[in-house]
């Protein structure tokens, strides 16, 4: 019994049954298949997280973001005091998370590639793009750079999904994806 010492002093030498050997082999191979799937998606898949990141002073990141939002502002979002920024395709696009907003609102063109920078200027936030359901963790002091290619037009919400204090559930931003002008 499993609650008593093994009866056989040299239990290591006991033979295995065929069932066990087959199951161990199957489970081991399945592990290799899953490992191989993860590795090969980096070569054949289109959804991989970039490894590009930089350390940056949050104040510097905020200045970069504000300068770009000012430069490419096309309108204000609804009746809110939040600019909508429409940077040129292929460019570096900045968005920041802070208590409790994603700023600014972005307007991107469908099927164009952008280098999206994400960072926080205070606490950790969770970038959750809905209804796409793309989820990234955003840290203060780290500039995360992703190359994205929005392939469906529409209005997307950026929900914060990392707890960031009492206003966490009000932290919603927007990304518009529009057809090419």
């Amino acid at each position: 019994m499993a609650i008593l010492p093994p009866e056989n002093r040299l239990w290591w030498k006991e033979p295995l049954s065929g069932t066990e050997i087959v199951w161990i082999a199957v489970a081991f191979v399945w592990g290799l298949v899953m490992f191989g799937t993860m590795v090969s998606w980096h070569f054949v898949g289109k959804q991989n997280l970039s490894n590009e990141a930089y350390r940056i002073d949050p104040a510097v990141y905020a200045e970069l973001t504000e300068a770009q939002a000012e430069k490419y502002k096309v309108r204000m979002e609804g009746n809110l005091d939040v600019p909508v920024s429409h940077p040129p395709p292929g460019s570096d696009v900045y968005m920041l998370g802070r208590l409790w907003e994603w700023w600014p609102v972005l307007e991107l063109e469908k099927d164009q590639t952008y280098r999206l920078h994400l960072s926080s200027v205070d606490w950790q936030h969770g970038f959750s793009l809905q209804p796409q359901n793309i989820n990234l963790q955003i840290h203060p002091g780290y500039d995360m750079v992703l190359t994205i290619k929005p392939d469906k037009a529409g209005e997307y919400a950026v929900v914060c999904n990392e707890f960031c204090g009492i206003g966490h559930h009000t932290m919603v931003g927007k990304i518009y994806v529009v057809d090419k002008k």
């Binding site: 010492p5 009866e7 056989n8 002093r9 040299l10 239990w11 290591w12 030498k13």
Partner: peptide, 23 residues
């Protein structure tokens, strides 16, 4: 002591290395 913990021919046999590791 190794009473009743294995058959007689096991008494003197050296414990395999992996078993010694796991012990």
């Amino acid at each position: 002591s190794e009473q009743s913990t294995g058959s007689a021919d096991q008494q003197d046999e050296r414990v395999p290395a992996m078993q010694r590791l796991l012990d």
